[in-house]
Design a protein around this nucleic acid. Structure first.
Length: 540
RNA sequence: GCCCUCGUAGUUCAAUGGAUAGAACGCUGGCCUCCGAAGCUGGUAAUAGAGGUUCGACUCCUCUCGAGGGCACCA
């Protein structure tokens, strides 16, 4: 990609730069790229940054390298780099040749990554509070694919344990009630009307003749029902999984048990008060301990999670990623300890936490609780504002922020969501293409060198050339909201281009170079929309 | 009590330790005989508070004040 090319050229010319960055600039008042390399060098040499910047700038100028059209040292010590337009044109040509392949990189070539996300508890519908993890994980997976990784998307289904028993007991209560019997609402049961619906479906499907001894049938039906509903919602968000893992399978196949045995043998479990506690005492853990086997001999959820992560770590993958809600943060050091125990380099295991979305209705905060039955489901919001709108909103902010989602405002402003601004730019591009009747240029023919581009043209060209960097940066730091911001910036550049320059003249004459730009922009819109997980409409 | 995360325009969000803190919505002034005005182009307005680190701090450190979450033989 262009940025790396420029950076490499500079490093060939100037030695001992250490860590430094080269930044794309929005407008050319500060160069096409800005380098902060003089600061670090000045510090190490005990000199003033601006002086060092001047020297670097002189060195680059004197080199006579054809890629640099101008270099400036600017107070307090930036080196602003101007690139010969020819090098931007080459990026556009590359884009036209590669089409949807443009923007791919080789960071993960030959490597396999598995990424777990959503993994919503099957005790109710996915609610908007934790729906954030879906688009987040999916987007990382897509960026990984753009970066050459072979990716495996996985979902863990907590279909065992006492919460599931309570869930089933609640459905049983409703089932009994529906068929006219009398039952008492179970202690610690799930409030709300959702499970009544499930029970109604169970009654319709399984008939009304089940007895208490068929609670297993009710349980299976309930879990199946909820998982299916949640899968539907995820599908609407453009999310699919390559594998579902069930806690019940880890238990029934003895994997949980054998992992416990393994840890005991390794001395990682400690007995206290009749229970077994996870206590590996390595650099990840200080005094954190956690029960793996209860004093009644039953394994906890954590035991199955250990077995599941053992499978992840021993499966021959190069990168393992978990995307969890921030409430799991106390779990993270334990998981990292497991990586070490099961022989996986912790450096390649990331637990990415996102903060829950807080939902408001006007000024009122909606408390989310599945047990209390008070929540806004992802489905409701989807029905109200649509998938593209919701996905773009959720991915517009850093996962670490506590974002507020005002349901009333979302309904009211759904037509004003930035996603439409971005998609509309794509529609305009498609529209020009359709109107021109032209085929996508594939050849390497040089259509740019003779043409005099305006600043608006050049801004668009530079944005397009930035795309490969956006993908590569995101593949490294997982900051997927960079994608939505980039999509917005690209759209702005395109709208500006569209308003100020003409591709098809009033007389019907087509500007071939500009049409090529439209094709290139369209290609990037498609790619970035795919990474985000929104559609690329031709009409709106 | 201990731990994690977050406090940026009226509101919702941006800003790999970099230059003049950006958008959107809101309020407001212009622009369609011209590839779709879901657009373009102006205006308004912000780093919770106090110290510190350094060439430079929204960003890192300390404290205070707010908000969310975690500290179960729940999952």
């Amino acid at each position: 990609m262009l940025r790396d090319i420029v950076k490499a050229r500079i490093e060939e010319l100037v030695s001992d730069l250490g860590d430094w960055t080269l930044e794309f600039q929005d407008d050319d008042t500060r160069g096409h790229f800005s380098a902060n390399c003089a600061f670090g060098l000045a510090k190490r040499k005990g000199r003033s940054p601006i002086e060092v910047a001047r020297e670097i700038s002189e060195t680059i100028k004197k080199s006579g390298e054809d890629i640099f059209s101008n270099v400036e040292a600017v107070h307090p010590g930036f080196v602003n780099i101007y690139i010969h337009p020819q090098f931007f044109f080459r990026e556009i040509e590359k884009n036209l040749m590669l089409g949807s392949e443009y923007g791919k990189n080789t960071i993960g070539t030959g490597r396999k990554a598995r990424i777990e996300y959503v993994s919503a508890n099957p005790t109710g519908p996915i609610h908007i509070g934790n729906a954030r993890g879906g688009p987040y994980g999916e987007s990382i997976a897509r960026v990984f694919e753009m970066s050459g990784y072979e990716t495996f998307r996985e979902y863990f289904h907590n279909d065992a344990g006492t919460q599931i028993e309570k869930l089933a007991a609640t459905v049983w209560y409703w089932y009994e009630t529906i068929r006219g019997g009398s039952a008492e609402f179970p202690e610690g049961g799930y409030q709300g009307t959702y499970l009544e619906e499930v029970a109604r479906a169970a009654h319709a499907t399984l008939g009304g003749a089940l007895s208490m001894s068929d609670i297993g049938t009710i349980t299976d039906f309930t879990l199946e029902f909820i998982l299916k509903e949640n899968e539907d919602v995820l599908r609407r968000l453009g999310i699919h999984f390559d594998g579902f893992f069930k806690e019940s399978d880890f238990l029934s196949k003895g994997k949980t048990e054998s992992s416990i045995a393994f840890l005991k043998k390794k001395g990682m479990l400690k007995e206290s008060e009749g229970a077994w506690w996870f206590a590996p005492k390595d650099e990840f853990l200080e005094d954190r301990e956690s029960v793996v086997v209860r004093s009644n001999g039953k394994p906890t959820y954590f035991a199955s999670d250990i077995a599941y992560h053992r499978e992840k770590f021993e499966s021959g993958y190069d990168i393992v990623i978990d995307v969890f809600g921030s409430n799991h943060h106390g779990h993270v050091p334990k998981l990292q300890a497991l990586a070490r125990i099961f022989g996986f380099d912790p450096q390649y295991f990331s637990v990415l936490l996102y903060q829950f979305v807080r939902v408001k209705k006007g000024k009122e905060v909606v408390k989310m609780s599945k047990r209390a039955g008070t929540y806004v489901t992802a489905k409701e919001v989807l029905d109200e504002v649509g998938s593209d709108n919701l996905v773009f909103s959720l991915l517009s902010s850093a996962p670490v922020t506590h974002l507020d989602f005002d349901l009333d405002l979302a309904k009211e402003q759904s037509m004003k969501n930035p996603v439409y601004y971005v998609q509309y730019a794509h529609v305009r591009a498609e529209n020009i293409i359709e109107k021109s009747g032209a085929e996508e240029p594939k050849s390497e023919s040089d259509v740019f060198s003779e043409f005099v581009f305006s600043p608006h043209d050049m801004n668009l060209i530079r944005r397009i050339a930035e795309f490969p960097c956006v993908v590569a940066d995101t593949a490294r730091d997982y900051e997927v909201h960079r994608l939505t911001r980039y999509a917005f910036d690209l759209a702005r550049a395109f709208h500006n281009f569209y308003e100020h320059e003409r591709v098809i003249g009033p007389d019907g004459a087509i500007s071939v170079p500009r049409l090529a730009l439209v094709f290139a922009a369209r290609n990037v819109f498609r790619s970035v929309f795919h990474c985000i997980g929104i559609s690329a409409p031709k009409k709106m």
